[in-house]
């Protein structure tokens, strides 16, 4: 899995390309923690190229959400693909991790 980030006007966009599984989940958590430590507490995780997520990956997203909120911000997800959407719905975590169609929309009303 490849991680990258870009600081935008009102948020930082994190991209996680590949499979978000037990191997990559701790790396996502570490990556986002570093982005937050760098001064961005409003995070959008762009899942456009995340073809797969399991419960470990979901756990990492929740950990990142908690870290962003503890820093006074929030974390939102965008461009969710079908398999990730299925996992979010089956675990009822779609109510906790709000999904937006695009990264630009995620904080557009704040």
């Amino acid at each position: 899995m490849e991680f990258s980030y870009e600081v935008k006007d009102s948020y930082a966009e994190v991209k996680a390309d590949g499979r978000l599984n037990m191997v990559s989940a701790p790396k996502l958590r570490e990556f986002v923690t570093d982005v937050i430590a760098g001064g961005s507490n409003r995070i959008v995780v762009n899942l456009e190229n995340t073809a797969f997520m399991d419960s470990s990956g979901l756990g990492a997203l929740i950990g990142c959400l908690k870290a962003a909120r503890q820093a006074g911000g929030d974390l939102r997800i965008a461009a969710v693909q079908p398999q990730v959407n299925m996992v979010l719905k089956l675990t009822s975590m779609d109510k906790v991790l709000t999904a937006y169609a695009t990264a630009e929309e995620a904080f557009s009303n704040d």
Partner: peptide, 16 residues
């Protein structure tokens, strides 16, 4: 709970 970071695997398998 909603903020738990683990423990969803078995329920997910059963749903799938």
């Amino acid at each position: 709970g909603d903020d738990a970071e683990s423990g969803r695997g078995l329920a997910l398998i059963e749903a799938l």
